[in-house]
Computed example of a mutant assay.
Amino acid sequence: MEDVNANGGVVNTVLGPVPAGEIGAVAVHEALLSVVPGAEYAFDVTIDRAGIFEILAAKLRDFRDCGGGTIVDVTGMFHGRDVRLYETLSRATGVHIVASTGMGPEAMLGGYFLTPQTNPPTPWPAEKFADLFGGEVAEGMVVPRVERRGAAGLVATVATRAGMTATDESLFRGAARAARATGVPVSIRFGAEATHDLAVVLDEGLAADRVVVGGLDRKDAVAAGAPLEIARRGAYVAVADIGTQTGEYITDQERATVVRELVDAGFGDRILLSTNAIGVAKGGPGRDLPYGHVLTAFVPLLTAQGLSAQDVQQILVDNPRELLTVR
């Protein structure tokens, strides 16, 4: 039997460990099925699994045809993650799918994760979150009423937009401990201040190169110089909302400039790209962008900025491979 560890380690996918060298171009921050917790019980929401499969299969085949190899789903535990569906999609389309454990921000947690006997309720301690997330890597992801399935490939968590709360901090620390114990990386979306939120997970002894910081293409982050500062601290800079060019986000042209500036500063090995698209959304707003948008629409902007084919290869293939390899 072939040793999957023989060629530089493995990546945890929903179909099991895959040699890291085989995952190809990666979209590192996407959602396949996003379901607001409880939406499945609403009178006006229909969960048609066959229909959802057909929609997602078409989008994944399009991604594959654009040159994509792997989709990372960062929805975590309670926002629609459907491991059995993802297994079937991966087999049908040939696209590797890396699923995540984790949760957040505080407002999206159920009362189960708070201690109601206190006033005000206090969050679970970080160690309980660490055990929960770590179990989904070491023992497999939990599927309701079914045994555990494949191992999660990363831990994903989000801070409250107005600023990290005590519950968010417990989540971030638990995510960092789980990642450190299991060898998978952490993907965080910062709240109000990227460097502060990164410092929380690094305080748990997690190496900076095991952390992805998303949301760094927000206008406030760019104005504060956060992309360059996060790269200087050794973490990955996720330009993860490509295709969104209104509201609090910069334009794709401005994103291409940010990427070029990072490359010029010597941080080409710390850049990751994605669209944060939602394949199917139930109970909340969608983000109906092709998963291949980075490959078809954004890469030409990078080449126009003077990035070489080698630069693009590093950002789309080499960097996510290094990140997702279990260590």
Results as ranks from 00 to 15, higher is better:
residue 319 N to H: 08
residue 159 A to P: 00
residue 43 F to T: 04
residue 62 D to M: 01
residue 204 E to I: 08
residue 204 E to F: 09
residue 264 D to E: 15
residue 110 G to L: 10
residue 182 T to D: 08
residue 158 V to A: 04
residue 21 G to P: 00
residue 160 T to A: 15
residue 122 T to F: 04
residue 75 T to K: 10
residue 205 G to T: 09
residue 171 L to Y: 10
residue 150 G to F: 01
residue 182 T to C: 05
residue 29 H to W: 07
residue 82 D to C: 07
residue 51 G to D: 02
residue 173 R to S: 11
residue 136 E to T: 08
residue 165 T to W: 00
residue 178 A to R: 06
residue 247 G to N: 09
residue 325 T to K: 05
residue 30 E to P: 11
residue 58 A to C: 04
residue 91 R to I: 04
residue 327 R to Y: 02
residue 230 I to M: 12
residue 32 L to W: 01
residue 23 I to V: 15
residue 85 L to H: 07
residue 56 L to T: 00
residue 242 I to H: 07
residue 218 R to W: 09
residue 177 R to D: 06
residue 137 V to A: 03
residue 107 A to R: 15
residue 180 R to H: 12
residue 134 G to T: 08
residue 242 I to M: 10
residue 221 A to G: 08
residue 9 G to K: 12
residue 220 D to R: 11
residue 123 P to C: 04
residue 9 G to W: 02
residue 196 H to A: 14
residue 189 R to D: 11
residue 256 A to V: 10
residue 28 V to E: 10
residue 111 G to Y: 07
residue 44 D to F: 14
residue 281 A to I: 01
residue 44 D to K: 00
residue 324 L to S: 07
residue 129 F to E: 02
residue 197 D to K: 07
residue 241 D to K: 13
residue 239 V to C: 13
residue 266 G to S: 13
residue 57 A to C: 11
residue 46 T to V: 14
residue 71 I to W: 07
residue 149 R to H: 12
residue 119 N to T: 15
residue 281 A to H: 06
residue 92 A to D: 09
residue 214 G to D: 12
residue 210 R to D: 06
residue 260 R to E: 11
residue 99 A to E: 03
residue 98 V to T: 09
residue 287 R to Y: 03
residue 316 L to T: 06
residue 256 A to N: 09
residue 40 E to Y: 14
residue 188 I to W: 07
residue 135 G to A: 14
residue 66 C to F: 00
residue 91 R to K: 15
residue 317 V to C: 02
residue 151 A to Y: 03
residue 129 F to R: 12
residue 186 V to D: 05
residue 148 R to K: 10
residue 256 A to Q: 08
residue 205 G to L: 09
residue 235 A to P: 09
residue 214 G to I: 10
residue 55 I to G: 00
residue 14 V to A: 03
residue 240 A to Q: 02
residue 156 A to S: 15
residue 166 A to K: 15
residue 236 Y to L: 11
residue 49 R to E: 00
residue 119 N to P: 00
residue 17 P to D: 13
residue 244 T to G: 08
